[in-house]
Design a binder for these strands. Structure first.
Lengths: 199, 199
DNA sequence: TGGGATACTAGAACACGTTCCTGTTACTGG
DNA sequence: CCAGTAACAGGAACGTGTTCTAGTATCCCA
């Protein structure tokens, strides 16, 4: 963190955007293969054809790197899911739909998920901005599902935050070997039923 | 993790119990002073007058060590709180009571909390047993508050799990610098109201 | 009570995140 | 076009979690 931060992302040169993309891509690939510990900074640098110092100029720590990678993944998930209103007549049904899709999407690549979620939890105050980007993306998804066609509802943002907390916590429990993959979804579904009971 | 595990805790000699206690005590003291990063294995070993290899025989990793320390702290908290039924006429009031006490108890020593919660989140499958001890302790506390004098209630264990998830997640958000200490309690209180709404 | 297994000490050694240094390349204003 | 500055490459070096080795002390049982 001694080097100066890179300029605003939207004022980067084409070469810099390409470097950033190569770094994220190498990170996702390594994480997908071997999880958190397989994402080694020297290896990421080598694969993205960038010097170690340059990697640290773009992402000041391994946690920044992995949380940024997750933000990019959540962005993609969000774009896929927000193409249309989630189906379902009740809030609970719609939220179940998006959270089930999100959960399945993560469980499809457990090692990648482990790496990203672990980084989210390890994030300290210096990573707040990147972490907030991830949480905002997930929150938007859930809030949209709660609202459905009915527009703003009371407490919808707070409810989304609670459900997101439970969602993350259950992923962690799964990654920590304390519950099975199938139980993740069962518990989240239960939480949705309890929190959005008045449907 | 190459050394053989120590014998069952209840079959340890007095000297071994004393070593274990010295290690936990040194850990708590270092964590309280400087948080997660201040708990350095060499320093813990030196302060507890134990060789580094011995420290690793008792606690196979830094995360094991800190989660075990948290289990011991939760035990103490639990014993203090369970002396009598939490006051309050409704489930929400009683749960609010124990979670507010627990939250205050943690916020009184932020660096210690940071160290312990961080370890909880970093725990992988090899720490499942220790993590479960902590969660069980917290769950007992909350379940007892939900039940009050009314005995077993529907979904009380699941509700306790959800509230514990939110409780942990809000601590992390606080430690991650994303919300203020005061907001931790506000959010948890809100979650209690939403999850235990039918009082 | 002796002898073998187990536990402990002291410290070197290793792995990986992070920092730092030196030299080179690419960009920008005059 | 040129000087000056910022960005990058390559790699050494450092800190801390973890492992390993060699020697010593302690425990347990025949």
């Amino acid at each position: 963190m001694t080097t100066t931060a890179p300029a605003q992302v939207d004022s980067e040169t084409a070469a810099q955007r390409a470097r950033r993309a190569r770094i994220i891509s190498a990170t996702l690939s390594l994480a997908s293969r071997g999880g958190y510990e397989a994402v080694q900074m020297r290896e990421v640098a080598e694969r993205s054809e960038v010097a170690l110092g340059t990697l640290y100029r773009y992402f000041p720590s391994k946690v920044h790197l992995l949380v940024s990678a997750m933000a990019s993944e959540v962005d993609q998930l969000s774009q896929r899911l927000q193409k249309r209103q989630p189906p379902g007549k009740t809030r609970a049904e719609r939220v179940s739909f998006v959270l089930e899709r999100s959960t399945r999407s993560l469980q499809r690549d457990p090692l990648l998920t482990e790496a990203m979620v672990r980084a989210m939890m390890a994030a300290d105050v210096t990573v707040a901005q990147e972490v907030n980007a991830v949480r905002q993306g997930m929150s938007d998804l859930i809030v949209q599902a709660i609202r459905g066609d009915d527009g703003v509802q009371e407490h919808d943002v707070e409810l989304a935050a609670i459900l997101q907390d439970v969602w993350f916590a259950r992923q962690i429990a799964w990654l920590g070997g304390r519950i099975e993959a199938a139980d993740v979804w069962r518990d989240i579904h239960l939480a949705i039923g309890l929190v959005l009971a008045d449907d």
